[in-house]
Every structure is written in structure tokens, then in C-alpha cells.
Design a binder for these strands. Structure first.
Lengths: 248, 248
DNA sequence: ACCTGAACACCGTTCAAGT
DNA sequence: ACCTGAACACCGTTCAAGT
């Protein structure tokens, strides 16, 4: 839902938005949609989504709380625009080159997605709130479509196959980002925090052997190692699955 | 982050929580953690996470805003408890039966997860905010571990394989829930809303052929059909991938 | 032991007014 | 065309007080 107050909120900025910003940047010290978006990203990176507010943003821009509203209708609209902007930061391989292996290009796209999601942990939270259909994110989507088509998966199965890859990456990065945020909040390293969590779980009455084995294996390596290993293995799993289903 | 105000927030309720609630329900009309959790679920189902507030909850319980705080330290703690409670609503297959096909049981677990996530759309949002390590969700996790072990995937790869399945389901249901919420907010059916979205995208300068094909295919069926088809295909893709990786 | 009321420090957003 | 100030209707939470 867009604003919790609005009677009938717009379902997405992109459904009514003019292509051009309200005002073009003219280089002087004034406000600008571009400047607003940049400041928003900076704040979200530094302080997280929970602490972000329109008032905080205005302060960062050295301006009164309501100035931003001349460029943007609501906070939700701003965040939707920011979401699309950050999607545009992904580097997309040249999908027109038919000599490239589709699997390699799919891996590249997945890794690029992961890089974006884990260097801006708030993006996963925005993806759970706003439709990701802005112009810049569509460029990425188009590249994904072009690559998966070269796999030989039949047209009707393409969206299913893509969702196996990218919904997985999204879910994985959500969990990753959340865990890192918790470690920061607790002021502990990832490994310290994990150990504490495991100790707490181990004390429970219904603690099970099946969990113990996994926990011990996990503690024999660093969180970072485990995460990278899991991600790489899972990604290969999905790609192998796409091939297997295609050949069925 | 737990509360945006607290200096050093607890990283998770479960790290310090007593096993028993502050007060046991005694059947009379008084407040109760159980009653509070039930009312919270009811409100979240009916009005969504964005509209949920401690004051709204108190009103629903016919009580003053601050009464709830006797049972629960913060709003975040309450939501983390609610998250675990709803996880406990999943039915878990009997994983001790070695004669059952692990693939069937894994499918059951994935479908159960999906059922929970798509009948309570706010759960995906909570999963992006709180660690899901309460006692009731651990029962589900243990079942998943037991089932995947029977696949023959080597122990070190088990967490990776599981994350391919369940992070996918999580991501998929997040997108599904978000889309449904948008349709409701716009007061349109899923198919009407989708059509409107596609029309808007088609007008863009950078509209690409690769997207057109997928969009046309999508419009030839209902959202519901497409979604079920995609989910089923993607789930089979991941399971096929687990087998392929195991046999490599 | 449980619940209340008033208060504090915040929100997003509207609206009339300034330049 | 752009920005401000005051105001409205909310938040989560603390704290002293009631029963």
C-alpha cells in the first residue's frame, strides 16, 4: 500500500508519472530530483530504511521538511524512484552475442543482482513493498529474458525458470542482509553473533539432533565462507535444474 | 534493527526471552500474550502491516494503549513472537518414515511454506525484518533438514540445497503478495491491473521486443494460471537441480 | 500484578503564505 | 517556480500514578 493515509493510493508511481522530472538540474545549488535521489541513497546506505524519514532527508539537503514535496508526491513515490535508480546501477552483459554461453551470462546477471542487493541492504526491503517495474529495472529484466531464451527452455517455461533463479537470489540476499544488520545492531561480529544464536537454540527443550549436525558443520567455518559456499552451490543447483527440465 | 530509538536494541527476542509468557492465561476476560498474538494476527490479516500499530491493537483488545506493554517489551518483540507463532501453523510431514520419497516430502514442505506465506501476506515482510529462529519455526527447519538429508546430497551441501528451495519460495511469495496487495489498493482485478501495467510499459521509448513476447504469452492466460504454472515449474526445476548436483 | 493518563519525541502530509 | 512555517493526525515508548 502506498500511503496508509490516502483514500485510494496510486498503485505505482510509474502508472501516472511523467517521463521527465519536474525540474531539470541546472547546476546551481538548488534542489533537484537527481540530488534528492542521491541523498536518499546515501542516507539509506548509512542509516538504513527504518531511520529514513522525509524530515531527515530534508535536513541532509539543508532544506526545510516540505521542500522535497515539490519534486515528489509522497515518500512512497520517492522510494519507488530510488529503487528503480539503484536497479539501473547493475551492469548488464551484451546479450546479443550469440557465441557466449547462456549459463555464464545467467551467472553474471545473478551475481550482479546479488552484488547490488548485498551492498544496499535496504533494497530487499523496498522490493517487498514496491513493484519493480521502473524503466531502468526493465533493462535488466530484458537482459534476463534474452539470456534464458538462449538456454533452449520453451517459451512458456521461461518466466518459471527465471523466477527459480532470481527469486532465490532475492530471498538469499534478504536473509544475508538481515543477519548482517542484526550483527551490527548487537555490536558483534557475524561469527560471534552466530555462536550466541546457536548456544541459545541448543538450550531449548525441543532441540534436535538433525539441527545439531548442521550447526556443528556451520561453526567449523566462517559465516562468510558458509554464505559464499551456499550461494554458489544453490546457484549451480538452479542452473543444473534448468538444464535438466529442458532435457526432460 | 529492533527499535529505531533504543541505544543498543536486543538483536532478537529469543536471545533473552524467558520460555514462559509473563502471565499464564487464566480464562477470564483479562489480557494475555496468547490473546494479544491472536488479535495481532487478526489485524495484520485484515488491514496489513502498514496500518498495524500498538494503539490500533490496544483498541481492538478494548484496552488502553499501554496495557500491551506489560506483556511485551516492544512492538518489534511482539511481531517477532507473532512471526514464530504463524510459522507454527505449518503442518510438517512425518520425516521419520524412511519409505517416503524425499522429493514428495520436500514438495509438501515447500507447498506448506507457500500456503502460509500467501495466506498471510505480511509474513514475508516480517521475514525481511526479524530473524526467524523462534522455537516453532525451528520445528519446520528441522523437518526440512531431515528430508533433504535423505536426498543423498552430501552434508556440507545441505544448507545450500535447502536455500535454493526455500529462498525461492520466499521470494516468489513476496512478489505474489505484493502484486495482490497492489491490485487491492488500486481496486482492480489481477488481470485488469496487469493489463494496465503492461500497457504502460509498452509505451516506453526503450520498450523491447524480448519483453513483448513474454508479455503476450502472459496475457494469453490469467494471472492465477501463470503464477501456478511458474511456481510449479520453478519448484520442479530446483528439485531436478538438487538431483543433478548430487549425481555430478 | 496489572492497567491507565499524560507526556515526549518523533512521523507523513496539507495548506496557506511567502519570495 | 520554488520554498517555508504552522498545523493536523498520527506514531512508539517512558514514567509516575492508580487499583
Amino acid at each position: 500500500m502506498a500511503s496508509s493515509r490516502a483514500e485510494s493510493p496510486r498503485a505505482s508511481v510509474w502508472l501516472s508519472r511523467k517521463a521527465v522530472p519536474k525540474r531539470k538540474g541546472d547546476g546551481d545549488g538548488g534542489l533537484d530530483l537527481e540530488r534528492i535521489v542521491a541523498a536518499t541513497v546515501r542516507l539509506l546506505d548509512a542509516e538504513g530504511l527504518a531511520k529514513f524519514s522525509m524530515r531527515r532527508l530534508a535536513a541532509e539537503l539543508g532544506v526545510t521538511a516540505m521542500s522535497v514535496y515539490w519534486y515528489v508526491d509522497t515518500k512512497d513515490d520517492l522510494l519507488e524512484i530510488v529503487l528503480d535508480g539503484i536497479n539501473g546501477s547493475m551492469v548488464v552483459p551484451d546479450v546479443s552475442r550469440e557465441d557466449e554461453d547462456w549459463r555464464d551470462q545467467l551467472r553474471l546477471l545473478a551475481l550482479e543482482y546479488r552484488k547490488m542487493l548485498s551492498s544496499h541492504t535496504w533494497v530487499t526491503q523496498l522490493l517487498g513493498r514496491y513493484l519493480n517495474i521502473g524503466p531502468r529495472s526493465m533493462a535488466y529484466t530484458n537482459a534476463c529474458l534474452a539470456v534464458i531464451r538462449r538456454s533452449g527452455v520453451e517459451e512458456a517455461r521461461i518466466t518459471g525458470a527465471l523466477s527459480a533463479v532470481f527469486q532465490f537470489v532475492y530471498g538469499f540476499c534478504t536473509a544475508e542482509g538481515l543477519f548482517k544488520e542484526r550483527c551490527n545492531a548487537a555490536g558483534l561480529s557475524e561469527d560471534e553473533y552466530f555462536k550466541q544464536l546457536m548456544a541459545e537454540v541448543a538450550e531449548r527443550e525441543d532441540y534436535e539432533e538433525s539441527f545439531k549436525d548442521a550447526a556443528e558443520l556451520a561453526e567449523s567455518q566462517s559465516r562468510e565462507e558458509q554464505r559464499e559456499g551456499d550461494f554458489a552451490y544453490a546457484l549451480e543447483t538452479v542452473i543444473a535444474g534448468i538444464e535438466a527440465m529442458r532435457d526432460r
